[in-house]
Amino acid sequence: MSSRFPLFRKRDLLVFVLAAVLAGAGFLSWMPQNGAPTAVIEQNGEEVRRITLSSITQPETLVLEGEISVTILLEPGQVSILHSDCPDQICVHTGALTRPGQSAVCLPARVAVRIVGEISSGIDGMTG
């Protein structure tokens, strides 16, 4: 193929690679919102934070101030209620949440942490 206009030049290949990368990026940026486990943190019915668990790279605490203050610990791949001023401590005892369908609720503080995402391999709800 020594024609003056070969079917593909290196530059054309570059455009294809660029398109493929863009498509891949689009695919990946779309996926976490729908598939990957995502922590949703609510206080008094308002969503205060939504974060994909896999995107957490180092531990972070989130303090939700209120009549009853609650501290939430975000870690790579998991989220837990670290501390609550509530009397029963059920929320703290729930432990770390890692999978869609899991939730930890502090009723007195009206704070809820739940994991949403693709649940075909996980659970749909919790009792107890």
Binding site: H93, T94, G95, Q102, G122, I123, G125, M126, T127, G128
Partner: peptide
């Protein structure tokens, strides 16, 4: 598939439930 309901561990140790 059937609905899957996790039963909480009363002691809260098993993070994936009982």
């Amino acid at each position: 598939s059937a609905w899957r309901i996790s039963v909480r561990d009363p002691e809260g140790k098993a993070e994936d439930g009982l």
